[in-house]
Design a protein around this nucleic acid. Structure first.
Lengths: 231, 231
DNA sequence: GAAACTTAATCGTCATACTTTTGCTGCCCG
DNA sequence: CGGGCAGCAAAAGTATGACGATTAAGTTTC
């Protein structure tokens, strides 16, 4: 997942700084300056900046430097960008955007999964739903989070659509983010757990409509909770 | 949009080659070899490979080289990856994935837009709907395509959700792709045009439900047409 | 036959020199 | 006094040689 090496360290510093606004939009970064600041060679700086450029967070021009682009240009689907934004100042905006995306995508994925899931997928979903129920009762928030992520990822994967499947990590980031930043009830709500179970059962039974409805209830609930907490 | 310079040229060659399978998954690319093949320096090769790495299309390891990762690892939301795939062998799979994504996202975006669109947005949507009607009648496929893209992008943007907004380019790529590769009726269907108009009107009127329904009909129709054509 | 050691291949990083582009300054002419 | 044009210089872009670090694979030894 992580980009490694020295360029990775540069990125891990610059990315969050830009995402949080600590380095504001419009700032011009000069290569030489970065070399000095991080005590690395030109090669390393260039590679890091190139990656930021491929995320459309900066734009390099000769004789000028690398300019931080407006947020609207950033590749908001890039996993790294999402993580950086979640860690910084516009965590709220990022969580809201992701919340809406989930409302759109996850119910659709659940419906597809009810039709397309393999037997293995169905078995896995059942198992995860059970795990979820157990850990919720034990109020073990960390493992509950892990299973919650696993569950949603599994549904997305079982949909058979590669783009949905890839949102698994993204959803994971959201769930982790809101747990880590105390935007979640400390005890998973009973009805939410029941709904997860309902999704799993519906998918196993091939009942697309129920799966979609239950999943929509889950993500809508999450979005409402989020909106309530953020105000 | 494009990444520029020599690394850009390398990328424009390697990316499509990998996406099309011409360079199969598992292939190991050595830096020296690439230097020779493209007659560029290590600096350039390294930057290009780094970008491929950030898209998770390859993974570099010391003493080994850069291995082409399985397709399931690729960052399928990266605009470049999408373009490359659309141009190559798995155009079909890519179009199907994107089709499902559209079905999930665009109706939701239309509903949001009906609530959140600014006056400017509404005016623009109306205008675009009119343009669409006119160019459809004239059967001018290229300008029709342009307006179609503009319309869908405008709806996504008007939703007020940055992630939806960013899918505008992606949807544009889909529409362009299917037009360029003759996966579309040569005359835009009348009812489709009428539906676009309906979406615009509903959004202007603040009628979220109608907007969502009309948009869903549009994208579901597109998906069905696609499925029919691909078989 | 397995474990430890050696080797060599290749990436990763650095330092430096050269090339190319381009914003800016200031001159010249209208 | 103002506008265009030329030359300058600053910064990114590219090339290259050297060295370090890592690790797969082969080799030796017990």
């Amino acid at each position: 997942m992580e980009i490694q090496g020295l360029p990775g360290r540069l990125l891990a510093d610059l990315g969050p700084a830009i995402a949080s606004g600590e380095i504001p939009v419009g700032t011009v970064l000069r290569a030489e300056e970065l070399e000095a600041r991080y005590a690395v060679s030109r090669t390393v700086v260039r590679e890091a900046v190139r990656i930021l450029e491929s995320m459309r967070m900066v734009e390099s021009r000769r004789r000028v430097g690398s300019t931080v682009l407006p947020r609207s240009d950033w590749d908001v689907f890039d996993p790294l960008v999402i993580r950086w934004r979640l860690a910084g100042a516009d965590r709220g905006a990022q969580l809201r955007s992701l919340g809406s995306l989930r409302v759109a995508v996850e119910p659709a994925a659940a419906a597809l999964a009810a039709r397309a899931a393999s037997d293995d997928d169905r078995r896995e979903l059942s198992a995860l739903a059970v795990e979820l129920t157990v850990t919720a009762r034990a109020a073990d928030l960390r493992t509950f989070l892990r299973h919650d992520i696993a569950f949603h990822s599994a549904v997305l994967r079982a949909s058979g659509n590669e783009m949905f499947a890839h949102l698994g990590d993204t959803v994971g980031a959201v769930l982790t983010g809101r747990t880590e930043h105390d935007l979640m009830p400390h005890q998973p709500a009973d009805y939410a757990v029941r709904l997860h179970r309902e999704v799993a059962d519906a998918i196993c039974a091939g009942d697309a409509e129920s799966a979609e409805r239950a999943m929509r209830t889950i993500v809508l609930g999450a979005l409402e909770e989020l909106d309530a907490t953020l105000d």
